[in-house]
Design a protein around this nucleic acid. Structure first.
Lengths: 198, 198
DNA sequence: CCGGGATGTTAACCACGGTTCACGTCGGGG
DNA sequence: CCCCGACGTGAACCGTGGTTAACATCCCGG
C-alpha cells in the first residue's frame, strides 16, 4: 500500500518535510533501542543534521514521542471505526475487516508497533492519559465485535481475547521477515481468525 | 504452583536471600518503567536499602539485567525440553504441553515476560548473544513440533507461527487481570491451540 | 539591495544517575 | 575479648545527554 515502512506517521506522505523525516527516523531508532537509549544526536545524525537542530522542529524529545504515539493511536482508532462501518452488519465480516486492518498496519509499521507498547511509560501523565483513551476506544471496537460474535462471553473475557489477538498479529517485529508480505498476511489472518472464532 | 509472582527468578524460592529480593524487585520495576528509567536508588528503596548497597550484591545495573534475562531464557529453554520429552511422541500432545507450559509461565511471571522482550537491547553484546542463543533454542523446539504437525509448512513459516503464538500467550501483561487465573488459562489455551492447528 | 525568518552549527550549561570511597555497625569464630 | 568479613550509609565523583545561547547561512519578499 505504501512504499516505505512506518509511513503511518506521515501527514503528507508525498514529500516528507524535514519535520516528518525526523519523526520517522526517531520512530525507527526508538523501536531499535528504546526511546531512553537514543540521544537527540542520534536522531539528528539519522537525518543528516546535528542534535540541537531538532529543537527547530520540536519542543523536546518527549514532545516527539508524544506526537508519535498520539498519531498512531489516533490513526488506529479512526481506521478501525471506518473499516467496521464499511463492513456491514455481520459481525463475522466486521471481525474480518478489523483483522485485515490490524494485519496491514502491523506489517506496514513494525517500528511503530514496537514503540507504542514499549515507550508509553515514557510519556508525561497528560499525554499518556490521552494515548490510553484512544487505545481504549480502539480496543472497545474489537470487544464490541467479539461480543456480538459470542454473546455468552463476558466483557473482560472479550477484552482479554482482543489483547491476545493484538499480541498474535503484532508479533511481526519479532518474526524477522524471512517470509514474503503476502505469506505473512495469509498466515496471520488465518491464525487470528481461528483464534477469534475458537 | 508458586505463591508470589515472577518467582521464576528464585534459585531458592523458600527463603529468598537479599540478593534474590533485589533481583525480583528490579524485575518488577523494570517491567513497569523500563530498565533505563529505573534508578539504582529505586531498586534499593524497593527492598529497604539505599542505592549503593546494591553493589554489595551485583557488579552493576547491567549485571543485574543480564543475570535476570539469562535465568529466564535458561528456565524457558530447559522447561520446554522437559515438557516435550514428557509428552510422548504425538506432536499434538507435544504442542499441548508447550502451550500449557508457556501459558503457566506467562501467568506466573508477567513482569519477566515484559522485561525479556523489552530490555534485551540494553544488554552488552556478549550477554545479548548468549540470551539470544537460548531464546533461539526455545523457539526451535516450537518450530520442530509445528513442523511435525504440518510437514508441508516451511521452516520460516513455522517460526513465524511460533512467534505469533508467543505474542498471543504473552499478551497477559496487557490484559489487566480482571479474569481469574483459571479463566485466563482456559482462554489462552483454547485460542493458542486453535491458532496453531488452523 | 536589504532585512528578516527559517534552519543549522558549535560551545556551554546543568541535572540526573551510575559508580566509587571512606567510614560505621554487627555478628560470629579464634 | 577482639578481629574480620558481610552488609549498609552518606558524600563525592564524573560521564552522559537534554537543553539553551550565540552566532552563521540562505532564501525570499519588498
Amino acid at each position: 500500500m505504501t512504499a516505505e515502512p512506518d509511513s503511518a506517521l506521515h501527514a503528507d506522505a508525498a514529500r516528507p518535510s524535514r519535520r516528518e523525516q525526523i519523526l520517522q527516523a526517531a520512530a525507527r531508532l526508538f523501536a531499535e533501542r528504546g526511546s531512553r537509549s537514543v540521544g537527540v544526536d542520534d536522531i539528528g545524525a539519522a537525518v543528516g543534521v546535528t542534535g540541537p537542530a531538532i529543537y527547530r522542529h520540536f519542543a523536546g524529545k518527549d514532545a516527539m514521542l508524544a506526537e508519535m504515539l498520539l498519531r498512531i493511536s489516533e490513526r488506529l482508532q479512526a481506521g478501525a471505526e471506518q473499516v467496521v462501518a464499511a463492513a456491514g452488519d455481520d459481525p463475522r465480516d466486521q471481525l474480518a475487516a478489523l483483522v485485515a486492518f490490524q494485519v496491514d498496519f502491523a506489517l506496514d509499521n513494525p517500528a511503530l508497533i514496537t514503540v507504542q507498547d514499549r515507550d508509553l511509560g515514557a510519556l508525561s501523565a497528560d499525554d499518556a492519559r490521552q494515548v490510553r483513551r484512544l487505545q481504549r476506544r480502539y480496543v472497545e471496537q474489537w470487544v464490541a465485535v467479539l461480543t456480538a460474535l459470542d454473546p455468552d462471553a463476558s466483557t473482560p473475557a472479550c477484552r482479554a481475547r482482543a489483547h491476545a489477538l493484538f499480541g498474535l498479529i503484532n508479533s511481526t517485529p519479532h518474526s524477522g521477515g524471512r517470509l514474503s508480505r503476502a505469506a505473512m498476511v495469509a498466515l496471520l489472518t488465518t491464525m487470528a481468525t481461528a483464534a477469534a472464532t475458537a
